[in-house]
Design a binder for these strands. Structure first.
Ligand SMILES: [Zn+2]
Ligand SMILES: [Zn+2]
Ligand SMILES: [Zn+2]
Ligand SMILES: [Zn+2]
Lengths: 150, 150
DNA sequence: CTTGAACCTCTAGTCGCTATAGGAATTAGG
DNA sequence: CCTAATTCCTATAGCGACTAGAGGTTCAAG
C-alpha cells in the first residue's frame, strides 16, 4: 500500500506515464483507486504487474500473450503447459525473424561492399534494388515491420 | 504501354491491390492514367517502380528511404554517396535488430529449457517474467515492435 | 447483352504506443 | 497559509505500413 503516484510508478517500473494509462485503458493493468482529487494511486501489486508486462514486452511477447500469461500466473496450481506453449511459440517467432533478418543483412552487406562509389547509374545499391537477380539469395519472403526507436 | 489493370499489376509485381492504391495515395507510386470508366491503367514504368519498392521493402527499407532512393535513381549522373549512406544506415539498423533479437532468443531458450513442466507456481517461464534477475543477461534495452504475418 | 469478376472510393481497424491541448490537482518552498 | 512549479487529468489524433469491409460501378468473356 505504498500509494504511488503514476509518475513514481513510471520511474520505478521503467514504463512511461502515458503507456501506463494506455495499459489501463485496454485492460492490461488493473485500474487503481483514486485520490480525492481524482489522481491514480498505485500499490505494490501494480508495480509487480507492470514489471511483469515490461519484462514480457522486452522479450518480444505481444500484449495478448502477456494477458494470457498474467491470467495463468494468477492460478498457481494449474499445469504450466499453456505458459510453456506461449513461450515456445514466441521463441519460434523470434528465430523466424532472426533468420529473415540474417538473409537481409547478407544482401545489404553484399550491395554495400560491391559498390564502387561512383555515379548513381553504376551504383550497386540502386541496381540491386531495381533487380533482385543481383541478390545472392532469397530474402524475407514474409513481412517485416520496421521498429521505432525512442 | 502494356495497359495493365491494377489486378494484373498486382500479380506481376507481387504487391497486393489495396497496397498499390495505398502507395499511390501517399505519393510513393505515380498516379496512372485512367480508363474512360475511371479505372487505373498502368504501364511498364509503373511495374518497374513497384518492383523497386517491393524489393526495398523486402530488404527492410522504410518508405521514406525508398522515396529518397527512387529520387536518386532518377538522377543517374550524380554521385551515389547518398544512396550508399542510406544502405549503410539500413545495414546498421538490421545489425542492431539482430543483436537485440539474439539476446531475446537466448533468454527465451533458457527459460523454456529450464522449466520442469509442472505447475504454474514453479514454471520457469512465469517466474522469469516476474523477475528479470532470473535472466542470464541483458536483453533488448530498446524498443521492438512485433511484426504481423499475413 | 448478360453476368460475374474485377474495379472504384471511403472509412475504420491493426499494434503498441506517443504527442498534444487545455485544464485541474498536488507538493515544496517561503 | 499562500503561491508557484510540477505533476496529474481526459480526450483526441498521429505514427508506419498496411488490411478489411461496405456499397456501388465498370469491364470483359461468352
Ligand atoms: Zn553506390
Ligand atoms: Zn533481392
Ligand atoms: Zn513451465
Ligand atoms: Zn530479463
Amino acid at each position: 500500500m505504498t500509494d504511488l503516484s503514476i509518475g513514481r510508478l513510471a520511474r520505478l517500473s521503467g514504463v512511461k506515464v502515458p503507456t501506463i494509462r494506455y495499459y489501463e485503458s485496454i485492460g492490461m493493468l488493473d485500474a487503481p483507486p483514486r485520490s480525492p482529487g481524482g489522481q491514480r494511486r498505485y500499490g505494490d501489486g501494480h508495480l509487480e504487474q507492470l514489471r511483469f508486462i515490461r519484462h514480457g514486452r522486452e522479450l518480444g511477447f505481444g500484449l495478448d500473450d502477456l494477458r494470457a500469461l498474467q491470467d495463468l500466473s494468477a492460478r498457481p496450481d494449474r499445469s504450466c503447459e499453456e505458459a510453456d506453449g506461449i513461450a515456445r511459440k514466441q521463441l519460434a517467432e523470434v528465430e523466424r525473424r532472426i533468420a529473415g533478418l540474417e538473409a537481409v543483412r547478407r544482401e545489404l552487406e553484399r550491395m554495400v561492399e560491391r559498390c564502387s562509389h561512383g555515379v548513381v547509374d553504376e551504383c550497386r545499391v540502386i541496381q540491386t534494388l531495381s533487380d533482385h537477380h543481383l541478390c545472392a539469395g532469397d530474402h524475407a519472403p514474409d513481412h517485416q515491420t520496421v521498429p521505432r526507436d525512442t
